[in-house]
Computed example of a mutant assay.
Amino acid sequence: MTATRYSVNCSILLTDLPLAERPAAAKAAGFDGVEFWWPFATSTPAQDEVDAFVRTITDAGVQLTGLNFNAGNMPGGDRGLVSWPARSGEFRDNLDVVTRIGEATGCTGFNALYGNRVEDSTPAAQDDLAAENLALAARAVARIGGTVLVEPVSGTPAYPLKTSADAIAAIDRAGEENIGLLFDVFHLSVNGDDVDAARAAYADRIAHVQIADAPGRDQPGTGDLPIARWVEDLAAGGYDGWIGLEYKPATEQSAADPFAWLPRARRSASN
């Protein structure tokens, strides 16, 4: 069986460091992969900003395993532009720069957060727009062998994709082959989805995995979720991609050593 490959989400972990220093810190901690939410203030950052970001990855000697499309103001409650009529143009403007970053780094997984329901549109109209935008994104990244990821999310009532089945329905409406399910066991569990049943039902649709324990969204072992078993079951079911560590240290002990749960010998993708 292929060894499990873990990547550090540098947008939620190692936040005591400037963003530009986090890939190197992940490497120093023993990891070979990193992933990011959209790291820029706009959909179309200046080329020198893009080049500087790419250098943080390449200079650290890590693989960029995942990158979000611009999702808006995440701290302010935004959860994506894909289905948001007023900001659809920003999403479409984002496609080329995301693809160029993927081409420069070898990244092929791109998370397109669906977007919250908005008062000045209808769910049906938003879903139609999302299908168009997801298809456009899939065609954009197809030229570099990329896959668009669609993710159920918890904690935001206005976000309509709560379960794996919700995400699969959105993927199927878009109708492109290179769109897959982002299987985040924390969000699915918090939303009440049956993680075991979803894994079995959609094993061939899972394109990326992220983990955090619940309650608390801290490192595995701090909550009640059987994460180790789920990771083993995913591998047994054929998943051989990266496992993104997307958790938030909730205690001083966890902040001091956010990777304590994972022996160093298991952190490198080559082990």
Rank of each mutant, 00 (worst) to 15 (best):
M1K: 14
T2L: 09
A3T: 06
S7Y: 00
C10Q: 13
C10N: 14
L17K: 13
P18K: 10
R22M: 02
R22S: 03
K27D: 01
K27N: 02
A28T: 03
A28E: 08
F31Q: 02
D32E: 02
F36Y: 15
W37G: 08
P39F: 05
S43W: 02
T44P: 01
T44M: 05
A46W: 12
E49D: 10
E49G: 00
A52R: 15
F53L: 08
V54M: 05
T56L: 09
A60K: 02
A60H: 07
G61M: 03
Q63M: 05
N68S: 13
F69K: 11
A71M: 13
P75V: 04
G76C: 10
D78V: 09
W84S: 06
S88W: 11
S88R: 13
S88D: 09
G89K: 15
G89D: 14
R92L: 14
R92C: 11
D96F: 05
V97N: 04
R100I: 04
G102F: 08
A104Q: 10
C107M: 10
T108A: 12
T108G: 09
A112P: 01
L113C: 03
R117I: 07
V118I: 12
P123N: 08
P123W: 09
A125T: 11
L129W: 15
L129G: 12
A130N: 14
A131W: 13
L134N: 01
L136G: 00
L136N: 02
A137T: 14
A140F: 07
R143E: 14
G145K: 14
G146Q: 12
L149V: 12
E151Y: 01
P152F: 08
V153D: 05
T156D: 14
A158C: 06
L161P: 02
A165G: 07
D166W: 02
I168A: 01
A169D: 06
I171N: 06
R173H: 10
E177H: 14
E177R: 15
N178K: 15
L182T: 02
D184I: 10
F186W: 12
H187L: 07
H187M: 06
V190P: 10
N191R: 12
D196N: 09
A197P: 01
A200E: 15
D204F: 05
R205K: 10
I211L: 04
I211K: 05
A212R: 11
A212F: 07
D213R: 03
G216K: 00
R217E: 11
R217V: 09
G223N: 01
G223R: 00
R229N: 07
W230G: 06
A235Q: 14
G238L: 13
G238A: 13
G241M: 14
E246A: 11
Y247M: 09
P249M: 00
A250D: 01
E252C: 00
Q253G: 00
Q253E: 01
A255M: 11
A260K: 05
A265T: 04
S270H: 14
S270E: 15
N271T: 12
